[in-house]
Write a protein that binds this DNA or RNA. Sequence first.
DNA 1: ATCTTAAATTGACATAGATCAATAATATCG
DNA 2: CGATATTATTGATCTATGTCAATTTAAGAT
Lengths: 255, 255
Amino acid sequence: MHNKNVISLNTHKSNCGSDHPVCQACEVRACGMCSELDTDNLHELRKITRLKEYKAGDQIFCDDEPTENYATIKNGIVKLSKILPDGRQQTIGLGFPPDFIGRAFKDKNSSFASALTDVTVCTFPRELFNDYLKATPTLEHKLFELTLNELDSAREWMLMLGRMTALEKVAALLLNFSERLHNARLLQGLESEKNKFELLLTRAEISDFLGLTIETVSRQFSLLKQKNLISIQNQRFIDITDRPALDKLAGHENY
Amino acid sequence: MHNKNVISLNTHKSNCGSDHPVCQACEVRACGMCSELDTDNLHELRKITRLKEYKAGDQIFCDDEPTENYATIKNGIVKLSKILPDGRQQTIGLGFPPDFIGRAFKDKNSSFASALTDVTVCTFPRELFNDYLKATPTLEHKLFELTLNELDSAREWMLMLGRMTALEKVAALLLNFSERLHNARLLQGLESEKNKFELLLTRAEISDFLGLTIETVSRQFSLLKQKNLISIQNQRFIDITDRPALDKLAGHENY
DNA sequence: ATCTTAAATTGACATAGATCAATAATATCG
DNA sequence: CGATATTATTGATCTATGTCAATTTAAGAT
C-alpha cells in the first residue's frame, strides 16, 4: 500500500521533464537542494552523485575523519550528534528528507551522523561538490536557505535545552516529531494523521536529544499518559490526544 | 591610546583602493560580509547602507516585529536571545564584529537582539538587501559562510547546554569569550593579551547564556578562583591563570 | 509456544543546581 | 565625599533530575 503510493508519485513526476532516470525517481527532487536546478544543471550534478544506503544504527560520518562526501537525505532519519571527551553525548539535530548533511566548504565535520532508521542518501564527493556549488549560485542559494532553516531550529533547541523542564522538553519533542514525520509522509505521498505516529527513537535516543536520562524521559511519558495528553501503544506508537495542552506545555505561543 | 591605534589602522586602509569614505574607514571592511566585494559592488551596496548606534542595553530588534533592517556589526557586542511565553529567557548567540545580524530571506526574526555594550552597526533595508544578495553570488557566498560558522557555534553550545555541568559551562564561556574578545581587539589594531579581558556580561547575562541562575554562576566563579584557574579584579576583569586546566574542564580535546 | 535478550518502567535514594534570604562589593548620584 | 542603588557573593534550604536497582514489557530466536 505504501509502495504503491510512492510509485504513483514517481510516475507523476516523470511527466515533468527529461531528468536523469535516477533523479526522476528521486523522492526529494521537488523539494531538496536540487529543486532549484534545471534539467541541464541537474544532469551536470548527476554525474558526480551516488546512491548509498545505511541500515538503522550505521554510522554515516564521524567527527574526526575528513569528510569525503556530502549527501541529501532521500529516505529515513539521520541523527547528528556531538560527544564530549569523556563520552557524554548530545544530539544536535535530526535530519529528515530532503535535508543536506555535511559541512559545506570544510574538510572536517564537527559532529557524528548516524542512521536512526534505514536511510537512503544521494552522495556527492566533497571537492567536486564544493567547486560545483561555488559555480552554481542557484544551488548555493538553495543550500543557504536549508542552512538558515537548520540554524533556526538549532536555536529553537537551545531555548529548549537551556530553559525547559523535563516534561516540557518531552512535549516539545513530540510536537516537533509529529510535525516532521507528518511532512515526511506527505512527501512520500502517504496518508498521514498528524497526531498519530510511530516514535522511531528509543528512550536512549530521546534522552540524548533532550539532555536528560532514559529514566527521566520515561517518567515524563508516564506523566503525559496519566494527564491524558497522549496515549502510547507498544511503547512506540504515539497518539496525541490533547494537542492544545501539549502545545501549551511546549511554550507555543498560540495554541 | 586605544583611539590612536584605531586611527592609524584606518589611515593604513585608505591606501588600498577607492572605496567610499565610509567603507574605507570601516572596522570590518577586510573581514566582514563586504570583504568579498570589489570596489564597484561595494559602491552599489553602499547606496543602501546606513550607520546606526546603540547604547548598551538598547533593543536592536525584537521577536514579533517584522525585520526592517539587517546589519553588520562594526563595533561592540550584540546579544541574541529567545524567550518563552512565561518569561524564561535563553541567550542563543553573541554577535561580535564582523557578524551579520538578522534572518536573511525572512520577514520575521525569531529572536531578540540587544546591545550588550555600546554598538555600532551598518544597516541594510531588508527588501533591497535580499534582492541585492540574490543578484550578487559573491556576497551571498560570504554570508553563507558566516551562517555556517554560526551554525557550528550554535551546535557547540547545544552540547554545552545539554551535557555540561555548571562549572564546565562557565569554563567554556570564559574560553570562548577570551578568544572572541582577543580577535575583536586585534581587529581593531589594539594590543591584546588573550588571557586577560574584561568580562562585559553581568552575572545575569552569563546565566541566561549558560542556562543557569545568577547564584550558580557566581559560585562557579568562586570555585575557579579557589582552584587558581582564574583571578578576577572588580568582578569584571578576568585573568586566566591556568588555561590548560580550563581547557580540560571545557572538554577541549587538545589542551 | 517458550526461552532469551533488549528496552522501558517504576521505585528508592542521592545530588547538582534552584530558590529564598542575608550580606558584601561596586557603581552612581547628589 | 557619603548616601543610595545595583550587582555579586555566600549561606541555608528545597526540588527536579540523576543514579542505582528491581521489575515489567516487548521483540526475536529456536
